[in-house]
Simulated assay, not measured.
Amino acid sequence: MKAHLGIRLLLVDDEPHILQFLELGLINEGFDIRTAPDGLSALEIAAEFKPHVAILDIMMPGMDGFEVCRVLRDEEPDIAVIMLTAKDEVDDRVKGLSLGADDYMVKPFSFEELLARIQARLRNRFPGLLGEVRCGPFRIDGRRKEIRFRDSVLELSPTEYELLQYMVINHGLVLSKPMILDKVWGYDFGGEENIVEVYIRSLREKLGDKEHRIIRTLRGAGYRVDLL
């Protein structure tokens, strides 16, 4: 719990039972929580509370999550935004990401997955808040921009560091090439998707992962890190 002390989360949803469920779980993890039942209240709270992460439901009366995301991104450029929706629509994901959302989750979801995604967003935007993160044989030190594997420091380029950090923090999840390009290279990257394969190959060599047991390739889907 101590790892999350001082980290501020804003939860925005018009369904009271969802707010209560998330609030209780995240308070138990040590986060400082504020909740809002609608978009206007969320913006008022955010202006004073200055959250590190906002978790926004899309479908709300009045000001929807998309508009809240747009305003938050304009007023609080450092905030990380995770959007929630009851439907898995590609157009919604594209719209949310284009407005500055960092992540997107479809209801129903597990609390453990939400927690992992919050930690991933914090690691990307506020690397000093979590200190050192341990994931199986990996230790990620965001302050030193350093990753240890089985107690040995990996010699990584800045892009290799960002890629491996992203994949390890999201271990167990299948990450497609477009997802990786968006998170590591940026949504406006104009190069070829094959650049991901080049960096994956380099990381496997540095990890001694000849049999691809750590960074797995899932044909037609993407890549997944498995912690051994």
Rank of each mutant, 00 (worst) to 15 (best):
I147D: 10
I79Q: 03
R148L: 14
G136T: 06
N124A: 14
R144E: 15
K145S: 13
E162Y: 03
E132W: 02
D78E: 15
C69I: 02
K95E: 15
F109K: 09
A80M: 04
T85A: 08
R125P: 05
D64E: 04
G136L: 06
E155F: 04
F126T: 03
V71C: 09
Q119T: 05
R123K: 09
E160R: 05
V90T: 12
L154D: 12
D151I: 08
L115H: 11
V153N: 09
N124F: 12
Q119P: 00
E160N: 09
E112T: 13
V90A: 11
L164K: 08
T85H: 02
I82Q: 06
L97Y: 12
R150Q: 12
L129Y: 03
D151T: 11
A54P: 09
M83Y: 02
R144M: 11
I82A: 07
E146P: 00
L156C: 13
R123F: 04
L114I: 05
L99V: 03
Y104E: 11
V81Y: 03
E112K: 13
P61I: 06
L130D: 01
S110T: 11
D64K: 00
R70D: 13
L97P: 01
R139F: 04
Y104N: 05
V53C: 11
I147W: 04
P127I: 08
G100H: 00
R73F: 03
L163S: 00
D64R: 04
K145Q: 15
F109L: 11
L72A: 07
L97M: 15
F138E: 12
M59V: 11
S157A: 11
L122P: 07
R93K: 15
R125I: 01
M60P: 09
E160Q: 15
R144V: 04
D64F: 00
E75S: 15
R150D: 10
G65Y: 04
E112P: 03
L129R: 05
D92S: 14
L122D: 03
K87V: 09
D151V: 06
I82V: 14
I79N: 03
D151C: 03
L84A: 08
Y161S: 05
L122M: 08
I147K: 08
D141M: 06
